[in-house]
Design a protein around this nucleic acid. Structure first.
Lengths: 130, 130
DNA sequence: CTGTATCCGTTAGGATACTG
DNA sequence: CAGTATCCTAACGGATACAG
């Protein structure tokens, strides 16, 4: 990274816009439904497709599949395929993904402090909660 | 005021995630387009509707308006109306909102470290001077 | 100046059936 | 077991006109 005149309004604005842009990219990845849940489940060693589906009440195959593909593409998650019968696939979190979940846990803590409790629906299937 | 179909799978899944962890509620608020930018602009004392619109290249009135309403409703932002002619309104961040932007800056830092550089936004319009 | 009302195209999310 | 292919609908984001 090159040194810049941090005092100039120009440089400050440039930095700001750069930041705004990057933050946008991050939120575009993790801001979609199911993504945060899935990432944190994988962080907690729920590594199989079927296991993830068990933990996520109501998700359909294609949605889980597409989210996993996105996470792999974004390099938050690694996919390992074992060529066996029956087929076996495992997902792991990457170091970058783990860094991200750390911040997401802070987001979650913020929510616990600032978002009021509203409706409670019935407890759902087994699986670790965040 | 559109009413939601509460028995659709879509709404059920949304509720499920909301209940499962507040993280999903948080992301539902800040994960939409423009929301993060607007919140950070308000944090940086861009308090007027017209000023925000200037800073956000391309946003339309109704979109800016609806995002602001959401932020007020979520108590991340306070709205103060001065009954004058012409009308004057100011938005400022709440303590809870400020806490949230702090975490958002961490998200942003994560992005800077882990998201490869692509396009950089050109600072065409005048932005805030921090 | 600060919005709301309405309309409209695009996309995210989901149901279902099928495959290696 | 671990997906993909299709089709479908509701919600989102935006354009425009107008109002307090």
């Amino acid at each position: 990274m090159s040194q810049k005149k941090i005092n100039s309004t120009n440089a400050v604005n440039e930095l700001y816009l750069d930041e705004r842009c990057t933050l946008n990219k991050v939120l575009k990845i993790i801001g979609k439904r199911w993504v945060a849940e899935i990432l944190i489940l994988i962080e907690q060693d729920i590594s199989r497709f079927s296991r993830l589906k068990e933990c996520l009440n109501g998700i359909s195959d294609n949605v889980l599949s597409s989210v996993l593909n996105e996470l792999v593409k974004s390099e938050l998650v690694k996919k390992e395929i074992f060529q066996q019968i029956p087929l076996k696939v495992e997902y792991y979190i990457t170091p970058g993904g783990a860094d991200l979940t750390a911040v997401m846990h802070q987001l979650c803590n913020w929510g616990k402090q600032h978002i009021p409790y509203e409706i409670r629906i019935q407890p759902t299937k087994k699986g670790p909660t965040i």
